[in-house]
Design a protein around this nucleic acid. Structure first.
Length: 111
DNA sequence: ATTCTGACGTGGG
DNA sequence: CCCCACGCCAGAA
């Protein structure tokens, strides 16, 4: 498992995001022990479009803002997917972000 | 090799 | 909360 690339680890965590919950790039990065490399998490998501089915729409920045929605097929596809899970999104901003936020560092076992 | 950019985060004001 | 500067690291030109 330690042999997995950073990207693979990101995908692994992303897949474990519960339905109707979201997390941030930094949270994943911190869980992977690379809190300072939150940008790489986003970069991994960028590659994920061609990889396995990653719920990238459940990953937003620390403010709960859908910063990466523009990277989806449609301009509002990301919001559509989130709302489909019961998450309220307004102006690219997740409402009740604190409630739907899912912290892997807190929920997943530390490896 | 060098420079810039980017789905980010933190700290200071 | 906003704005600004810096750090971080992988990839593209």
């Amino acid at each position: 498992m330690e042999n997995d690339n950073f990207f693979q680890k990101v995908y692994k965590v992303a897949k474990q995001i519960p339905f109707g919950r979201v997390t941030s790039y930094g949270a994943i990065a911190k869980y992977l022990g690379a809190a300072k490399s939150a940008r790489m998490v986003g970069w991994a998501m960028n590659s994920s479009h061609n990889m396995e089915e990653i719920p990238a729409h459940r990953v937003v920045n620390r403010k709960g803002l859908l910063t990466g929605k523009q990277h989806f097929d449609g301009t509002n596809l990301m919001q559509q997917l989130l709302e489909n899970e019961g998450i309220i999104v307004k102006e690219n901003q997740i409402q009740n972000f604190e409630k739907v936020f899912w912290d892997p560092y807190k929920e997943l076992p530390v490896t």
